[in-house]
Design a protein around this nucleic acid. Sequence first.
DNA 1: AGCACGCCGACT
DNA 2: GTCGGCGTGCTC
Length: 830
Amino acid sequence: MEKYAQLVVRSKSVSIDDLFTYKIPEFLLCDLKVGHRVLVPFGQGNKPTEGFVFEINDKSKLEDGKLKQIIDILDENPMLRVEDLELINWMRNRYLCTYMDCINLMYPKGYKLNSYRIINLGDSLRSLSDTDLYIELEKLNNSQKEVVEKVINSKGRLKVDNLESICKNTNEIYKMNKEKLIDLSWAYESKKNEKKICYVSLSMSKEKIDDYIVENKIRVTELQRNILNFLENNDDVEINDLLDLLSVHRQSITSLQKKKLVTLEFKDYYRQPEHIFTQQSKKVKLNEEQISAVQKITSEMFNDDKKPYMINGVTGSGKTEVYMEIIEYALEQGLDSIFLVPEISLTPQVIDRLKNRFGSIVGVFHSKLSEGQRHDVYRAVREGRVRILIGPRSALFAPFNSLGVIIIDEFHEGSYKSEQNPKFSTIEVAKFIGLKNKVSVVLGSATPSVDEYYRAKSGQYNLINIRQRANKKPLPKIEVVDMKKELTNGNKSIFSFRLQEEIKRTVESGNQVILFLNRRGYANFVSCRSCGFLFQCENCDISLTYHKESNTGRCHYCGYEVKIPKKCPECDSEYLKPFGVGTQKIEEELQGIFPNVNILRVDKDNTSKKGSLEEILNKFESGEAQILIGTQMISKGLDFANVTLVGILSADMMLNFPDFKSFESTFQLVTQVSGRAGRAEKEGNVILQTYDTNHYAIRRAINYDFDGFYEDEIKIRKAFGYTPFNNMLSVVISGKNEKTVIESAKNMYNSIVYLLENRGINNFDFILGPNPCSISKIDKNYRWQLLFKDDNIEINLLKGIIKYICITKREVVFRKGVNISIDINPNSVL
DNA sequence: AGCACGCCGACT
DNA sequence: GTCGGCGTGCTC
């Protein structure tokens, strides 16, 4: 009986985001499984294309004549598991993205299919003798002649891309193809980024080899003799070592192989990511709260209907120890674990603790891993050599055979929401996986997000509280300094008198200080005090951040950089002045106040190089410096025993950010940063500088009153209809041409209104916009936005309509050259 | 993305 | 009347 496969083909075009039916040839019938990667002909040109089998059926909706056949299976085992397919379907619908967007998350880019067109001589020229061919050639025009000559010289290995120098467009090529002057055919290569290492050994025992050479009268050169001698004493030598040690060429070895004296064997090689940060592992005894958290979760591990868990534990409550106990229990039961962290490069200490405890079965996914290393980790997970994977949100899709636990540490962090397609929420996806595959999902944070805490309170999570720090020390006291008063007392510096005094005291007593400021660079912007001219990015709607060491203004969005001149380009005055403070300026001023103190700085500007963050942290840990200045990067995961003072230089900077989540992030940052103080035996102290001493986010934060903050914040969210009470859907339309962007945005609004009116909906208050985005231009692209709340409209109806307009009717509604970005519950609406 | 088809203006 | 540019639409 005929069988048919429903598959998704790899393509960059949104309009091909659908299931296509192919016939399964008989020779593949028993091998082909759902989830397999296959090779299929696609489009009028039958281009060899990668496909992913989603279904296998007995019947086809389409008539047989329209169907093509699958050519081959590309991998021995299906690349996607049945549960992956289910997840892909769910994500595609939830985040309004394509199948391919989701599939791309599931396996590393190393598995690739490249197809290209090969040109040969066409039928009308092929059988001709040399002289006839010459005559035919003379009849052609110049460019045709050149093409045919190139084809003749290339011996059938000519790619169409190589002809671009001759033909301006590929049209000419197609025409020649039709006239049978040339023949176009497809070729493809399937890549698997699996690094193999070649090992060399003698093909027979050393006793026999000399006889063999004599018997068969084999000539062996001196170099080759050396190789054989070496191999007689060392079996299984890596070929590169052999080449290096004996300084011979590969040629010698291949010739020995041809003479059947040595054998080459390819073995898998696993690239080991190196690892720099070192820390002594301290064995900890869990306190009662920690033990009961572990017991609650482990005791339910095999329950079918368990809810996800939320651990709300104060900073320093030893959540990592709890996670490790859970992972160990799972391991004893034969279950694998995924440990998600917000950004892997920021948590070297956590990785180290896991590696110390569990050894080589711990795998790490890095944003800084090479594609090959990532590939190796993926395979190690598949083959069961890695049982615990620690990584950022992408680690969620690792192909574990028996996954038991997903831990999301610091789950309130923004990096858990993807900014690229599919714009998924890690928490939502983890919960989906947990529900479908009976996996225990554990969210942990000292400062849960308001959204998830609301869900916990309404019973969607098992809420576990840990209220005591592991070292039983009280949380560091947070002292507020009113910067308005500092100003009236004549202190214009960034450092209040209190903070200066405390830094001095701390350093003198041999302890360490962490200073936090959420802005890198030297100054916020450069402006002319005479005429008000502001240095702005050419490509973005953003003022340039001043970087002193290079005397430039830099755009933190697109990387644009420009020298700051001595005189104002507008009015020629010399009153150009940098305004606002960044970490670089803090460093400079602090060094001025404390010339004998060593200061380290950590921000995106000096940690982009691999290992540089670890290096700085190691220096700080070893006491080489007394003060560490940093941005968000130092707000979490760091554990330094000697830090007794934390200074938060400007809490307002975050508070005044124009986004509805800015109060929440202020509260979170203050709490997290304060938690860096007094983590070991010594008591910690925090000084928080602000102009707005009365804001509830600040007041609640200094008392570590999360529940109080939550109560304040949730009222506001409810009043304005923000999450968690409503879903918010953002559609950003961008493009280089401002006019077409605006036109498209207005078109979209009108189309939606039209469709909704047809369904009897007349109140459109839930649509905000179209408006220019707060940052109305990024990297030369103008940006307009439409915001939807599912206030009085069913979310699936809304999503259906948006999908219909943005994808199905895309060409009708949107002008050419505009991009559409759809985001469900975006992190920020800028 | 490709590739083909078809409409329209320019040129023999 | 024909050639070639490009806009349009489909891909199992």
